[in-house]
Amino acid sequence: MTPNRWSDLDRPPLNEAALRKALLGESSLWTDLDVVESIGSTNTELAARAARGEAAPGAVLVAEEQTAGKGRLDRSWTAPPRSGLFFSALLRPEVPPHRWGWLPLLGGVAAAGALARSAGVDTGLKWPNDVLTTGKGGERKIGGILAERVGEDSVVLGIGLNVTLREDELPVPTAGSLALAGAQGTDRDPLLRAVLRAVEDWYGRWTEADGDPAAGALLDAYAAGCVTLGRTVRAMLPGGDELVGEAVAVDGDGRLLIASEQGVQHPIAAGDIVHLRPAAGE
């Protein structure tokens, strides 16, 4: 028998009609929502739709499966069909462009908070925008956020979250899923609603503060949820350089401040971070 979208009863398809009814409306940030069965990358497709004039700000594109999903630093993101939430939103930020770099961090704050509330799991953020579960099984990456500029005035914000991946389906040993973290529920419809509503809430605060992360409380929320802070880390920087030190803060530009053994603070705008030791008191 040919497999279909109902073959795996543990992974039913999303209910597009119910999601549209719950999320779209005159007062909502979200203006359209489209669920597709399989696509290369929701970020790539939504950006292309915007370029063709087929998507307006507030459009959300959700895929049951991504065959060429994109992560940070041009890495791939793949997962079995209907095993997670893979979606992108088109935004037209009415804040100064130099503050747009906060959008992926905003997405991380929104996703981590929404999952903690709706799935009942402990979550954290690894700088800059990895979403982790932080329970008894240790820290496991369950999601990531990628923001890409579209034209002169828009951004596509992509979020990928592992929901029901099993141990034998994980791409790397450090990955995880809500199910493996003991989530109280893995129904993707309410989880997607929760995350999109949280993004809308934080985006509204950020916009009202003209993109100022401190005035909009985004900086404090990010710092409170960032498990990188207070730890000894190794930063692998663009160009091949490395820096080892204590991650002491996130600054107003979203950069990670790492204090070297000499006490000099180095702002890191991009790079891979490896957690070497737990924060003091853990």
Rank of each mutant, 00 (worst) to 15 (best):
D251C: 00
P97D: 03
L91G: 09
L237H: 09
V227N: 07
E139A: 12
S7T: 15
A112R: 02
D168E: 15
D189C: 11
A22F: 03
A89V: 14
L103F: 12
A269Q: 09
K141P: 03
P190C: 13
Q66R: 01
A279E: 12
D272I: 06
A249D: 15
A68E: 14
E54M: 14
T2N: 15
A217H: 10
G69V: 06
V155I: 15
A22M: 04
A269N: 06
S260L: 09
N162S: 13
T31P: 01
L257F: 02
N4P: 01
E94D: 11
G281T: 00
S28Y: 13
P173V: 08
P80V: 12
L9I: 12
G151Q: 00
L243V: 02
L23D: 10
P267G: 08
W202Y: 09
L115N: 00
F86M: 15
S27R: 14
G281P: 00
H275Q: 08
E26M: 13
A51W: 06
E54R: 09
W100D: 02
V35W: 14
A17L: 07
A259N: 00
A223T: 10
R99W: 11
A181P: 09
W6Y: 15
D272E: 13
R72P: 01
D220E: 14
P97S: 13
S118L: 04
G58T: 03
W6P: 00
